[in-house]
Nucleic acid binder design. Sequence first.
DNA 1: CTCGTAGGCGTACGGCGTACTCCTACGAAT
DNA 2: ATTCGTAGGAGTACGCCGTACGCCTACGAG
Lengths: 217, 217
Amino acid sequence: MPRPRSLTPDQLASAALTVLDRDGLAGLTMRAVATQLRMSTMGLYRYVTHRAELEALVVELVFGGVDPTPPAGPADWRDRIRIMVERVRTAVEAHPAVVPLSVSHRHTSVSLLRWSEAVLGILTEAGLDGRRRALALRGLLSYVIGAIQLEHLGALAGAGTRAIAGLPPDEFPHLTETARYARRIGPAEEFDGGLDILLRGLLDPPAQVDPSAPAPE
Amino acid sequence: MPRPRSLTPDQLASAALTVLDRDGLAGLTMRAVATQLRMSTMGLYRYVTHRAELEALVVELVFGGVDPTPPAGPADWRDRIRIMVERVRTAVEAHPAVVPLSVSHRHTSVSLLRWSEAVLGILTEAGLDGRRRALALRGLLSYVIGAIQLEHLGALAGAGTRAIAGLPPDEFPHLTETARYARRIGPAEEFDGGLDILLRGLLDPPAQVDPSAPAPE
DNA sequence: CTCGTAGGCGTACGGCGTACTCCTACGAAT
DNA sequence: ATTCGTAGGAGTACGCCGTACGCCTACGAG
């Protein structure tokens, strides 16, 4: 065996993350990351075959900061879920420019798999299983992904809501009125409020039990 | 006033949508759209100042296909919401490549504003108002955005789930077991299942009423 | 009739991802 | 100590992209 590699994937990823934090998503180019690492542009391709692979490394680095161990503290399983979700949210929000990347590379992250495993564990303790548990995890993921993007595209207490408040009230009576409330809702409150709705829905027994639901194989 | 324009924004948008459907998001370039319209590349810039503006036109065209009138049929308000949400889902799914664009240009679409207005109307009839109504709409939007993306990045009955089913069961016991159920869940079922959770949560009275909630101004 | 704007074409620039080539430096196996 | 395979690194080049800019033509309202 000859000469070992002199850069770990982690070093690569954190160089890219530095660029991303500094210059935003549009600034994340192979050339910029190479410069950050003080190597030639093409040198990057020794470690990575595509730009997409570099992006995946960054996403994994960010999700790697999420503690995947289920919290032992709260008795209420909904509080434990809240904590798990909050961990993802804070990890992503420390680096807003990774939001779009985290959506498209979510499925390649083993850290997020471990997170999902823990969440499923909590859901299992809560008495969910089979089909309901699968739908619950998927629903949670959908909400988290959507809510994080919404927050970064324009939180409720932001310019978009202000624009809506200025719409013609005769054409948009509910929207304009709602916008007045929405301006007072901070990002965390907004996120938790939606999560609460979802958790309340999880708690309830299913509206109707489908006897034809498939059994595990 | 001299000479009127010879192309409507709608013609522009549908040319772009044709390209998008045929060549995917990466194929949606100014050059390709111009060729589709049989004009020179730079001719496009007579109608549009950026590529982003063209993208917004496409998104508005797609959302323009969503019927914004609240459905009169079902007595249960949740069924009416389901119909409204389903309309968005089907409109977007007819053009899968528009999914990423619809997320980033969502806020510029007046069609989506009208849709939101109608949804707020239904929520109002359901007895929600003020802060709760704002959070409900935002929660619904978050879920819809996240779920649509999840579906197009890899539905439950897809390759991702199959990969998860093949993970080491000792490290991911819940995930591997859940994946076996998840393979049987079709996209529509998955989407509706998550929506049901949310709607169930909306129905319930709030877990605790916050007396310090801000009043409307 | 005329003049301002739309229509249209072509060229050019800078930046992107990345394929390819060439040379050097190391370090484990011999 | 020598050898040899791979990592490191630089540089060049290609084909895309968005788009700034200039020039000429055609039309239609005043």
